[in-house]
Simulated scan of single mutants.
Amino acid sequence: MAPSLFQRINDTARSVLLSILSRWLPDGVREGHEWVALNPTRADSKRGSFKVNLRTGRWSDFATGDRGGDPVSLAAYLFNLKQHEAAQQMAVMLGISDT
């Protein structure tokens, strides 16, 4: 069975996640297998509570409890989009068609 479009988007995003996070969260730093950044959705003043796993795309803000399991959910969270809207925008960004 072929992977779903959503899965293809997440798989492709994970393969270039460091590059994506460098654009989305430019104040971040790599710490091992995590990208540690300020959370731009709140008045975050110190790195450490907002982290993204560079292998899996799982992310969490340990200060607020917000979290998700993949790059699409991170895009939806950061840019205040619905999951399908985030997936559509990421597909365009990554050059993925639905065919």
Rank of each mutant, 00 (worst) to 15 (best):
M1V: 12
P3G: 04
S4N: 02
S4C: 00
S4R: 11
F6A: 14
F6V: 08
Q7L: 13
R8G: 02
I9F: 03
D11F: 00
D11Q: 13
A13G: 12
A13L: 06
A13S: 11
A13F: 10
A13M: 13
R14I: 12
R14H: 06
R14P: 09
R14S: 06
L17E: 09
L17T: 02
L17N: 03
L18P: 05
L18W: 07
L18G: 14
L18H: 04
S19C: 01
S19E: 14
I20M: 08
L21V: 07
S22D: 12
S22T: 15
S22F: 00
R23E: 15
R23N: 14
L25Q: 06
L25R: 04
P26R: 03
P26F: 01
P26I: 05
D27I: 01
G28P: 14
G28D: 05
G28Q: 08
V29E: 13
V29Y: 01
V29M: 13
V29H: 02
R30P: 01
E31P: 01
E31Y: 00
E31K: 11
H33A: 15
E34Q: 11
E34K: 10
V36Q: 03
V36L: 05
V36F: 05
N39K: 04
N39Q: 11
P40Q: 06
R42N: 06
R42E: 03
A43Q: 14
A43H: 13
D44L: 10
D44Q: 00
D44Y: 07
D44G: 04
S45W: 12
S45V: 11
S45R: 09
K46I: 09
K46L: 12
R47N: 10
R47H: 06
G48Q: 06
S49R: 05
S49T: 14
S49Y: 01
F50K: 04
K51D: 06
V52Y: 08
V52M: 07
R55I: 10
T56H: 14
T56G: 03
R58C: 08
W59S: 03
S60E: 15
S60T: 10
S60R: 13
D61K: 07
F62E: 15
F62Q: 10
A63T: 04
A63I: 02
G65R: 09
G65P: 11
R67E: 15
R67P: 00
G68F: 03
G68W: 12
G69W: 06
D70H: 15
P71L: 08
P71M: 08
P71F: 11
P71I: 13
S73K: 15
L74I: 05
A76M: 05
A76P: 00
Y77A: 03
L78T: 09
L78K: 04
F79Y: 15
F79R: 05
L81I: 02
K82L: 08
H84L: 09
H84I: 10
A86L: 06
Q88E: 14
Q89Y: 02
M90Y: 11
A91T: 01
A91Y: 03
M93A: 12
M93N: 02
L94D: 09
L94R: 03
L94E: 03
I96N: 05
S97G: 08
T99F: 07
T99D: 14
